[in-house]
Design a protein around this nucleic acid. Structure first.
Lengths: 160, 160
DNA sequence: GCAGCATTACTCGGATATAATTTGTCCGAGTACGTCAGG
DNA sequence: CCTGACGTACTCGGACAAATTATATCCGAGTAATGCTGC
């Protein structure tokens, strides 16, 4: 899985507690990752409609478009890694000297079915958790101080 | 996901009905895929202990090491694609200017937990299906003729 | 006719190139604020 | 003092390279059957 998924999820959690729009460069510095590359993933989030990019002199940056409990982890994963399933059936059964005739292939082959079911289970598991729950987990594990520290750093005038 | 997974699964299903050891080249021709590359994946299956490679003049080839209902789809997937989870936590929370102190990171972060749970669900779904069940599905969908045709072709003396 | 042996043809196994995807970077387009001139 | 336009500094967005991984391939090591020879 793309490493950008992890970055994007952390960014979404941070945006949960950000009172202002946060520029991509600020998010990158906060997480100590490549600024330019993170921007790419944030663009993907924007295309998916999860975040909104505000442009302009001093108030620009990214903001969540909806409440954090309306954004599931699956939304972020699919925005970054795409919605295509990991397994794609090549229809091997229709190839080779003993190929199954196409008229007998009305249903996907058993292997594809199993893979599809597993993929559905995976997605369901990710869909069951929201960004808001992730944020709640952080405060539960590390206390409220974690987020106040991040908020304070985010609202710092510039690098100091 | 690696495309070799699909090949390996089909090969395992075929080996279910093969009365003799089947060489890699024969399996490759049957599925119309690269012979050399399929050999690599069969080696991975052999390393995982799912199949046994018999060497020798005319009786060489691959055989399942155990009954097909003792081999799960997950076994094959893990043999080919590895057992590592798709998501690996980079411990982003411990990086950057507002990094979480290491002593507070006794548990994996919430994101990693969610990803791990999803991975577990995915694996459980794949573990629930055996190769024998896949083979049964083929006979149910395409009739017993499908496997008899394959068996007949497999036992053909050579290419003709 | 039978046993032993060298041959042979076939198999797997790992080391080796190539293509695709992921990762990383750069510069141009666009907008809101702050400033300044004019009324 | 208020209004309008302008300039500037900051933002995002997509086009452009490098590294890693997946894909594909080749040739050498090893084994069981086969055919032959000698008894």
């Amino acid at each position: 899985m793309s490493e950008g998924v992890e970055w994007a999820l952390h960014c979404c959690v941070v945006l949960t507690v950000a009172p202002q729009p946060v520029p991509a460069a600020r998010l990158a510095e906060l997480h100590d990752v490549s600024s330019s590359y993170l921007a790419k993933h944030l663009q993907q989030l924007a295309r998916a409609g999860l975040v909104k990019a505000l442009q302009g002199g001093h108030a620009g940056g990214y903001v969540l478009t909806r409440s954090a409990d309306e954004i599931t982890v699956l939304d972020v994963v699919e925005a970054v890694d795409g919605t295509r399933a990991a397994f794609v059936c090549t229809e091997i059964r229709q190839r080779g000297p003993v190929a199954t005739p196409p008229e007998a292939c009305t249903r996907p082959c058993g292997i594809a079915q199993v893979m599809f079911a597993a993929d559905q289970a995976w997605r369901a598991s990710l869909r069951a958790v929201t960004i808001a729950e992730l944020a709640r987990g952080v405060t539960k594990d590390n206390g409220p101080a974690a987020f106040t520290g991040i908020t304070r750093w985010l609202t710092k005038p510039s690098e100091g």
